[in-house]
Computed example of a mutant assay.
Amino acid sequence: MRSRTKVLDATLTLITRDGFDAVSIAGVAKASGVSRQTVYSIFGSREDLVSQAVASAALAELDDILTRLNGTESPCEYVVELLVAGRAAVRGNPVLSALHRSGREHPFFDTGMVSRAEPVVRQLLEPMSEKYPETVPEIDDITDVTLFLGLSVVLFDDPEMHSDDELRQFLTRWLGPAMPKP
């Protein structure tokens, strides 16, 4: 098994078992059977390691999310369904659900997190740009809005607060007027 895969697998295991606070370069190196230098040479920093681990867990949910997005009929509905499906993925994935029980080492508050998350969001929005070409000129703004709304939906999630339908209605009410029309 390649070192990168071993390190990511070990990181995901640590996050699932003990949360983000338990992830350190030394701990991941030990759990993956590689040297600390190997971890640093592949990922550069703890923040990059955690970001890439979370991104890999999120992208593992991509097929289910894309299936939900294929049935959308407007750019607004696409973004809303992406956010609703994203919240469902966070709730259902052991690694991603650790975002709810994270302490002081929460990856959403790492320096540079937005710049690391932006390419992931852009990748998720790419099919929307193909399906709805009218969104292409505004894709940077749509990416930013989707990223920040997604962070809010995950950080402030409470199953008692909103059902999927309530979240969908709220987001549609606020995003609808701002999104390009097909």
Rank of each mutant, 00 (worst) to 15 (best):
S3G: 08
S3C: 04
L8Y: 07
D9Q: 15
T13F: 01
T13H: 11
T13I: 11
T13L: 13
L14N: 02
I15F: 00
T16R: 14
D18S: 10
G19Y: 02
G19P: 08
G19T: 06
A26G: 04
K30L: 09
G33W: 02
S35K: 04
Q37I: 09
T38M: 06
V39H: 00
Y40C: 07
E47C: 02
Q52M: 13
A53V: 06
A57P: 01
A57R: 05
A58W: 15
L59A: 06
A60T: 11
E61W: 08
D63W: 05
I65S: 09
L66K: 15
T67S: 07
T67N: 08
R68W: 02
L69H: 02
S74R: 03
P75T: 02
E77A: 14
Y78M: 09
V79Q: 11
E81L: 01
L82H: 03
L83T: 07
A85Q: 00
G86T: 10
G86D: 10
G86P: 01
A88T: 15
A88M: 11
N93I: 12
V95G: 00
L96C: 05
L96K: 13
S97K: 09
A98H: 04
S102W: 05
P107V: 05
D110W: 05
D110T: 02
G112Q: 00
G112P: 09
R116K: 13
P119D: 01
V121N: 07
V121S: 01
R122Y: 09
Q123S: 08
P127M: 01
P127E: 03
S129G: 05
T135A: 10
V136F: 00
V136Y: 05
V136G: 09
P137C: 04
I142A: 02
D144R: 10
D144Y: 14
L151D: 02
S152C: 13
L155Y: 08
D157C: 01
P159D: 15
E160R: 11
M161Y: 09
D165T: 13
L175V: 10
